[in-house]
Design a protein around this nucleic acid. Structure first.
Length: 297
DNA sequence: AAGCGAGACAACCGCCGGCAC
DNA sequence: CGTGCCGGCGGTTGTCTCGCT
């Protein structure tokens, strides 16, 4: 049975988002949270479908997103996770704080695939291309390779190698220099423990920051003033985030409320990138955010 | 300086699973 | 149990940027 489109497309805008649309979406979500993506665009005054809004928010506007190229460490994590999980980008992304499935997928398709091919590795099954060419022993991506039971990987300094302790590691490129090596993952620290660390910090990052609220509460914002358990999102933003965010010193004095922050964003003197680049340790912030949020509810 | 092609990434499309009714 | 809605996911496309000629 064919499904109806996610929304009536007549009159809805498509294509790249404008700064004005971004502002509307950010403003609405920071103020109200997101309840139902289907009705959000109407409430926010956007001529977009809910799906488009959700994608824009999750892939681009979310304040906890990292921007810029993946680090070598992240890239190696992606490769390792892809070997275990296959093209399950959302699962892979869940292990990399601040990265989206779309971003990882794009990076895989544009960078990592080529890199692996250059190294003589089949990016699909992570086996040496010579083995792949024979068409034998195609290993099932969906099942964790046996090396997981004991193998570990580490990244060596400036080289782009992913070195696994298991014998026959396809990622090993012996020709490259190992000088200036800086072991990021210590001996005995398994990739599994790494992933636990990563996932523990990434989970629920924005779930805590932007509480989900009921539609009727958005439609009737006064509800918040009389129902303490449901935190008014604006007060969450003011009470939770602003006090401990490391805002730039020249801006800090100008910010005391969410709308102050948004107005700075509005006039181009501030951005999420700037916020992040100015030393906001997101992992720490997420923890603090969780603690403070839980303390308040 | 202009044209072209490749690369990078944002955004869209269609399908799927979960859930409520 | 069947149906429809919704959010999420993965594959694909579109658009922009940059480097080369």
């Amino acid at each position: 049975m064919g499904r109806q489109p996610c929304c009536h497309k007549v009159g809805l805008k498509k294509g790249p988002w404008t700064a004005e649309e971004d502002k509307k979406l950010i403003n609405f979500i920071l103020t109200n949270g997101h309840c139902c993506w289907r009705v959000l665009p109407k409430l926010a005054g956007l001529q977009r479908c809910g799906k488009s809004c959700r994608l824009r928010w999750t892939n681009y506007l979310r304040p906890d997103l990292k921007r810029g190229l993946l680090s070598e460490y992240e890239e190696n994590m992606v490769i390792h996770l892809h070997a275990q999980l296959g093209n399950r980008w959302s699962k892979i992304a869940s292990h990399l704080p601040g990265r989206t499935d779309n971003e990882i997928k794009n990076h895989w398709n544009t960078h990592i695939k080529k890199k692996l091919k250059k190294m003589g590795i089949d990016p699909v099954n992570h086996q040496p291309l010579s083995v792949t060419a024979t068409g034998t022993d195609q290993f099932d991506q969906k099942q964790p390779p046996s090396e997981d039971s004991g193998g570990s990987f580490r990244m060596d300094g400036d080289s782009e190698d992913l070195v696994e302790d298991a014998p026959g590691n396809p990622y090993e490129t012996p020709t490259e220099s190992k000088s200036n090596s800086t072991t990021i993952v210590g001996e005995g620290e398994t990739s599994e423990s790494l992933m636990m660390t990563s996932s523990s910090t990434s989970d629920c990052a924005y779930t805590y920051a932007i509480p989900l609220i009921d539609l009727d509460k958005i439609l009737d914002p006064c509800t918040y003033s009389t129902s303490p358990p449901s935190l008014a999102p604006d007060s969450v933003f003011e009470d939770l985030q602003l006090p401990f965010l490391d805002w730039p010193s020249h801006q800090r004095d100008n910010i005391s409320t969410a709308s102050d922050a948004l107005s700075l964003w509005d006039n181009g003197s501030f951005s999420w990138d700037l916020l992040i680049d100015d030393g906001w340790d997101r992992e720490l912030t997420v923890d603090q955010l969780q603690n403070q949020y839980q303390a308040m509810v």
